[in-house]
Amino acid sequence: MIDWRLQCRAIYGRAYPRAIGALREPSWMFFDIFLPLLSISAFIFYYRALGAPAVYEGFVVIGGAMTAFWLSVMWGMATQFYWEKETGNLELYMMAPMSKMSILAGMALGGMFLTSVRAISTIVLGVIIFQVQMQLTSPLLLVFAFIITLIALYGMGMLFSSLYMFWGRGAWHLSNLMQEPIYLVSGFYFPVKQLGFYVAMAASIIPITLGLDSMRQILFGAGANGLLPVVEEIAILCVVAVVFIIAAWYSLRHMEYLGKKEGRLVLRSQ
């Protein structure tokens, strides 16, 4: 029996420091909005100099803003449990009666909220500064694509978080390793179709690839040069989201067992 009241309280409890804590540091917010804008400008001036189609500028703004979510998943989710272990929070979470998935879900929701604040600010500023033209045909579909992308993306973060729990510093290296190539593979700054169909499909295991592609199709129509029809992309994202979340649940359970067996949940320093 799942006590949903308890789970909801736990999710809200864990989301709180994420969402509120970081908003208390206005300087972080400034850099988190301002720095993506810088790299967006760089790409836009680059595309303009090359005489690329105007629609690419919109791509860059959306891609640049979504970068924040990728970073949030890598650094705010995947490496999080390892960090929580070091600070002693992990054992307090493990000992508490709520499902450990609620902790991951709380982390994800808090991260989504905070990052959305940043990403939307970046998009609004980008659209205003660079006069991006959009032809938003179906706002509802856009919102749905955005949300399902986030769920799939943070689902992946949840899976990584439980896998990384015991990898220690290795987790950092892996996150570092995944940070840069992702900009190429997932098509943050250009239509992913340019990579060729099969490479693009392979890259779609990372939910941000299809997420970006579908949102761009909804926003820029045929000019977006989409990989698959929007509905198919969204359907795949739904499946990916479910698979990641179920995998995270199994992985978390297994890792908790391993941790208790090998003594790796607990801090050594006491």
Partner: peptide
Amino acid sequence: GYGLLTVRENLWMFSQFYG
């Protein structure tokens, strides 16, 4: 605990894990 939260908020957060 989390350094960015207040003492009261931290205590509240942990209480939420017990519903």
